[in-house]
Each structure stands twice: as C-alpha cells, then as structure tokens.
Amino acid sequence: MRHRTFAPDCNQPLDGLGYEAGRPFSGWQSRHLETLIGGWLQLDPPNLELATLALEELTERREDLNARMKFARLELAPIPWLGAARAAVLGTLLPQLANERKGTGGRGKVYVILRGGYTETSQWYGAYVGSTSRPIASRFKEHREGGARSARGLPVHGIEPLYSLFLPLNPIGSSRAKMVEWETRLHECLAPIIPKVTGDVAF
C-alpha cells in the first residue's frame, strides 16, 4: 500500500448498523457485502472501516477472496487491528461504562480517527483518540483543516472516524473532567492493540 492523502470529508455512520455487535454484518448476504466493499473503497476518503468490517464477516464465512482482491486492486489495505480493538472496547470499556451511564446525559463524546502515513512495520494505520462536546463531523473537519485545534499529522494523514470504536460508548457526560477521563481510558484500552495511538492522556 502506498501513502496517500484523501479528501477531508467525513464519512458518516451507516444507518441501522449495530456497531456494538460482535459481527455487525452477520445477517447480510455475501454477494451484497462484496459489492458494497467495492463501492466503499472507491470513495474519497474510502470507508475503510465498513469495508474492513464486511471483509471480517466474509472471512468468517471463508468467502473473502474476491473482497481481498478489491482491496489489492485499489492499493488499499484493510485495518488489521480493527477486530481486536473492537473486542477490547466492547469487552472492557462498555461494561465499565454501564453503571456510570445511569442518569448521565450531556453532549460529551469520545472519538477515534483512523490515521495513515505510517511505515509498513506499523501496519500502515494508527489511531488518534480525542473527546469533544461538538458534533463528530465538525471536530473531524477541524482536524483535517489544520491550525491550533488540529493535531499533529491529521491534516495530511487523517482518514475517517472509526465509529465502531466509540459510538457504543457515547455519550459520556458533559463535564471536561469526565471527557478527559474517558478519553484516557479509551486511549489506554487501544494502545496495546494499535501500533500507533496518539492524543492526550491524563496521568
């Protein structure tokens, strides 16, 4: 896979998809998934998250060859650590949040952005973890536009929000302290799995 910079647009979550499920595409037909993977990969930016989740489902069925060829033809790689990262979030952080969420509203959210631009030894992709009270699309746009509210590397190498790593957790409350706490928890949950995780961590 070669390094490239994609358009600064924000992919939206897929309506009706259960991002909190272990296999979100388990009820979808294989041929339909193959067709969708081709379409998702040709977007700019490509929707690598959905394409990878669909590929993981086809791999479970041992029907993944054609889908892998679609990635190869477009010189794109699936996200190799996405399945393990999702398992950690759903198995560790979501149960921790269950009791805290009772009676907790607000607009505070954590988020994860897929970041490219790394070397092959880092499996090409890393992740940036942040928190915000603003819409995710607005915060993503700020990261891609650069400036004081961006983060190092994201204006060039930011690709897309990884909804399956944060939608099941949100909202996390409105206070800045709670947002920083959960940003740190998410960062520490993902760091042992994803080769490169950046963002602020409270110690």
Results as ranks from 00 to 15, higher is better:
L97W: 14
G117Y: 02
Q96A: 06
G16I: 00
R115W: 02
S133H: 09
Y111E: 05
R61Q: 15
R144S: 12
T35K: 15
Y19L: 07
A7E: 10
T59G: 05
A87S: 15
W40N: 03
A137G: 06
L114D: 05
T104S: 12
A191S: 13
S133C: 09
Y125W: 11
L55N: 02
L55D: 02
I172M: 04
S133I: 11
I79T: 07
Q123K: 14
G106V: 07
K141D: 01
L50Q: 15
I172E: 01
E142N: 04
L43D: 15
L65Q: 14
A87M: 11
P155H: 09
S26T: 08
R31E: 15
R107T: 11
R23S: 12
Y128F: 12
P46Y: 13
Y19T: 03
L50E: 13
K70Y: 05
H157T: 12
L114G: 02
P192F: 07
E183F: 01
G39H: 09
P24V: 01
Q42N: 13
P46K: 12
P192K: 05
L186D: 09
K196H: 07
A88H: 01
T104A: 13
T59W: 01
G173I: 01
V89L: 09
A51N: 06
M69D: 10
Y118E: 04
D64R: 02
K178E: 10
E120V: 07
E120A: 12
L97T: 02
A88N: 02
L36M: 15
E160A: 08
G153V: 09
L114K: 03
V89H: 04
W124C: 01
F203I: 09
R176A: 15
V156K: 09
T132K: 06
G146K: 08
G126M: 05
A191I: 06
G22R: 12
Y111W: 11
R4Q: 14
Y163K: 02
P95F: 02
E181P: 00
G147T: 02
R134P: 00
D64Y: 01
L17S: 00
S175M: 07
A67Q: 12
L90A: 11
E60C: 12
P135Q: 05
S174A: 14
L53M: 13
L190N: 11
A88D: 01
G27S: 07
M69N: 10
L74G: 10
Q29I: 07
A51K: 06
